[in-house]
């Protein structure tokens, strides 16, 4: 009985010995390989089943057969490991040398939104002025007639206000105390200078309003006001600072032109134009008006309690919408405030 078991065990080992190698080598993927191994060393595998017959084997042979079984099990495992590595290598090779991914499927993108082109232009301007030492202040959109005009030195009943066709709103008083939608951000000169002492370097962006509504005018638009007040500030500084600004904004391949102009709250007043400089055979571009500027009028300085004999300053103002329009080739200012999503998503 026991010899029979011994023989059977030995025969079983021999069978497995002969079968495992071709079986494992026939497997070409990981799953098949694992299945092949399971046929021999898995819970229901041939070797596992065989081992269950060990109890019937005569005791003196058990050690020998046990060692042989273990050796065979290890051999199966070793071959399995080798085969698995080979299969993985092959799979990697196949992936690396195989067909290309469909690159045209869309990415799983988080879909970022957009800032409005006016905001983008405004932030670019603020970044440049910020880097030059100007701080940003914002002020109210509704202000008094006094701060919008009188304190800035606009003469009463004067055509200088023709370009400032003004919206009045309810709730204000008479004369200087009337409430208006500010026609320019220059109100911020009065507001900031009245509550603070020099040195002051401020830029102030914001909405402004004028009673103009046609192809080229929107009754609401955006301006950026800037001013610098300190001892010894001159018109040369005005030109220097604004030239640095323009070179940072447009690049250095530009021509800059300062020319005389008139704004009631500056004296001398100037307008600044910029154009693409001539390069090689290409002639210079056309002049483009960028901003109005000048030395802050002594009346304004006195109105905020400064002594024009002691401090001086320059101020400038520009249309942010215009800059956004030039930059993005936006043909019509109205497009800025229609809020068409197709437009807003384009920048």
């Amino acid at each position: 009985m026991s010899d029979e078991a011994l023989e059977k065990f030995r025969a079983g080992l021999a069978t497995i010995e002969g079968e495992y190698q071709p079986a494992l080598e026939a497997a070409t993927n990981e799953n098949a390989l694992r299945e092949a191994r399971a046929k021999f060393t898995g819970p229901q595998g041939a070797l596992t089943e065989l081992m269950k017959g060990m109890k019937d084997v005569p005791g003196k042979h058990r050690r020998e057969l046990g060692q042989a079984s273990n050796a065979l099990k290890n051999a199966v495992q070793a071959l399995f490991d080798a085969r698995l590595e080979a299969i993985e290598k092959e799979a990697l090779r196949a992936e690396l040398e195989g067909p290309m991914l469909d690159l045209t499927l869309p990415g799983r993108r988080p879909m970022p939104g957009r800032l409005h082109p006016v905001t983008r232009a405004e932030y670019d301007l603020l970044d440049i002025f910020g880097s030059m030492g100007f701080e940003t202040a914002r002020g109210p959109e509704i202000d008094t007639f006094g701060r919008c005009f009188s304190q800035l030195g606009f003469p009463p009943d004067h055509p200088a206000t023709d370009e400032h066709d003004t919206f009045y709103v309810s709730g204000g008083g008479e004369g200087d105390e009337a409430h208006v939608l500010r026609t320019h951000t220059s109100t911020m000169q009065i507001r900031e200078m009245s509550r603070r002492e020099p040195p002051l370097a401020v830029v102030s962006p914001g909405k402004v309003f004028r009673r103009d509504d046609d192809a080229t005018h929107s009754p609401m638009f955006h301006q950026l006001e800037g001013f610098l007040v300190d001892e010894g500030i001159t018109m040369a500084h005005l030109q220097g600072m604004l030239t640095v600004f323009l070179e940072r904004f447009f690049g250095t391949a530009i021509d800059v032109r300062f020319r005389a102009s008139y704004f009631p709250f500056v004296e001398p007043g100037a307008e600044l134009d910029v154009r693409r400089a001539a390069q090689g055979d290409e002639p210079a571009g056309p002049w483009m008006e960028i901003l109005g500027c000048g030395m802050i009028h002594p009346t304004v300085l006195r109105n905020v309690g400064y002594d024009p004999e002691k401090v001086s300053g320059f101020a400038f103002g520009m249309g942010v919408d215009r800059i956004a329009m030039v930059r993005h080739a936006i043909p019509n200012i109205k497009a800025l405030y229609d809020n068409d999503v197709r437009f807003l998503s384009a920048f």
Partner: peptide, 9 residues
């Protein structure tokens, strides 16, 4: 989100 700027009035 896309930034809109509407008229203040």
């Amino acid at each position: 989100l896309y930034e809109a700027i509407n008229h203040a009035f």
